[in-house]
Design a protein around this nucleic acid. Structure first.
Lengths: 164, 164
DNA sequence: TATTGTTATACTCTATAACTATA
DNA sequence: TATAGTTATAGAGTATAACAATA
């Protein structure tokens, strides 16, 4: 929903960005940074999130569904495509004969590590436009916002991507 | 890419969210707010952006492609599905016999106005977790970040959604 | 019986390539 | 010839519903 020209600078300077617009634009900027880095490795956002989730887990299909907010049938296809590319592997669960454990292959780990590193650098560069003291201020305010939001709504929404 | 439990509160409090993680999570939170409001009206993010773009424009298919960052064939289908739902209409361009002008119907405008209003309220509520003075501080910092980014990279990326 | 995962089906979204109609 | 738009095709991503295997 963007009625006006998509030039953040003009909009921010000319008519002082509204608080809502500013946060919305920042959100989409960061989202597009992630999208761009993922695309460098032929990954979609959801494939990137899948790999990210697997960095320190070995979940079942069902657990992946909860982590990613997807139906198990969607996860099944997602994992199938990642497996076909050699990024993840499936193995039968020793504990439950019905379950499957999904884990990263070495290739998959290398890929996600690299994408995460690049994305992290992008966001760092973005932050680098502000002086140190203001970076700290911004980070603090953002943290408080997220804490308040979490306290308010519980978890549920957005199994949010992040970088180490 | 989220190696750890998706609980912003725990993460922010326990181990003080890193600047990169904080911004990434905020981005995904806001994105999910928009997604949720769009879904209330059976709209995808891209359909919502389409309607948003049309709020103060009457572009051709080609122009829509540039505004949304999509191929003309993708736009063709997007518009076709929106038209089938009665949200937009196509009319021949008086200026160029090859072109088509796309515009919102009344139904489409009502829908996007409502979604934008609800989304704006969501972001306002989110901001409302901070005291006034900190809201101002955050907004100022975000504006400066966006200005700096735009100066750095030009426009190109992310025909970012926004609300009036 | 209940749960886990897969498969069949259907739809949106996207791009490439081929086509048409106009310029 | 070049441009605007559509269509054909292919593939990812998503959900619902039906199914097989296991618990």
């Amino acid at each position: 929903m963007t009625p006006r020209p998509a030039d953040p600078a003009r909009r921010a300077e000319e008519r002082q960005l509204s608080p809502v617009d500013g946060l919305a634009q920042l959100s989409f900027l960061i989202h597009s940074l992630l999208e761009r880095r993922a695309a460098e490795h032929d990954l979609s956002i959801i494939q990137t999130r899948l790999l990210g989730v697997l960095r320190d887990r070995r979940p079942t299909i069902n657990e992946l569904g909860h982590l990613l907010g997807l139906d198990k049938s969607s996860v099944s296809g997602l994992v199938e495509r990642a497996e076909r590319r050699g990024l993840v592997s499936r193995s039968p669960s020793p504990a439950d004969g019905r379950s499957v454990l999904v884990s990263l292959t070495e290739t998959g780990r290398a890929l996600v590590d690299r994408a995460a590193q690049r994305f992290g650098a992008d966001v760092s560069d973005l932050l680098g436009h502000l002086p140190r003291s203001e970076q700290r201020a911004l980070t603090g305010l953002v943290s408080r916002l997220l804490v308040a939001q979490a306290a308010d709504e519980g978890i549920e929404l957005c199994p949010a991507p992040s970088v180490p």
